[in-house]
């Protein structure tokens, strides 16, 4: 038996209330499925996307800061290394210069020794040649004296020949002395 409408004030109808309720439940379900949930889901995904981007950016920034600190540390180490290498190079250059100087001195000594030996050899040779010349002159003079001239003439010739020979032999002897003085 249907409810009496007149019994309810303001014409409230329970059947229509249920119909309104059914209508709203359908609306709620439809809106939730078609609009609210997909839009919220999209907004949530976008928020997560930007949060992830933010986190990645922070992570990269932290890595960059770390790399920068390492770089600065390496840079400071490199400067120290450059200074130490410069010191080592300077020492090496000094050592090389000293060695070169020593070698030059040794070379100079050896050249000087050779020069002295040459000078002694040349002087000995000159003396030897002079003796041979004197002997030859004497021999020549004696022959002349013995064959053609008197003793006084021969003696004068002998003296003249000796003077000439000594004058000739003075030039190499003087050169040898100059080399000795030079040393």
């Amino acid at each position: 038996m249907p409810l009496q409408l007149a019994a309810v004030p303001l014409n409230i109808d329970w059947q229509q209330i249920l119909l309104h309720l059914l209508n709203f439940v359908i609306l709620f379900a439809g809106l939730w499925l078609l609009l609210y949930k997909p839009v919220r889901s999209f907004m949530q995904k976008r928020r997560e996307h930007y949060e992830k981007m933010d986190a990645d950016a922070e992570k990269k920034q932290a890595e960059a800061e770390k790399a920068r600190a390492e770089y600065e540390e390496k840079l400071a180490g490199a400067e120290q290394e450059i200074a130490s290498q410069r010191r080592a190079a300077e020492l090496q250059a000094e050592e090389y210069g000293a060695r070169q100087r020593r070698e030059a001195e040794e070379l100079a000594k050896s050249i000087l020794a050779e020069a002295r030996a040459d000078a002694a050899r040349i002087r000995a040779q000159a003396e030897k040649d002079a003796r041979a010349d004197v002997a030859a002159i004497v021999t020549d003079a004696v022959e002349k004296l013995a064959l053609k001239e008197s003793a006084s003439t021969a003696y004068d010739q002998f003296l003249a020949a000796v003077d000439a020979q000594s004058a000739a032999s003075k030039k190499p002897a003087k050169g040898a002395r100059t080399e000795k003085d030079h040393d």
Partner: peptide, 14 residues
């Protein structure tokens, strides 16, 4: 819809 007392009661009670 809500100027109907039944609709208003529905939404209020719900």
């Amino acid at each position: 819809p809500l100027s109907d007392i039944n609709g208003a009661i529905t939404l209020g009670c719900l």
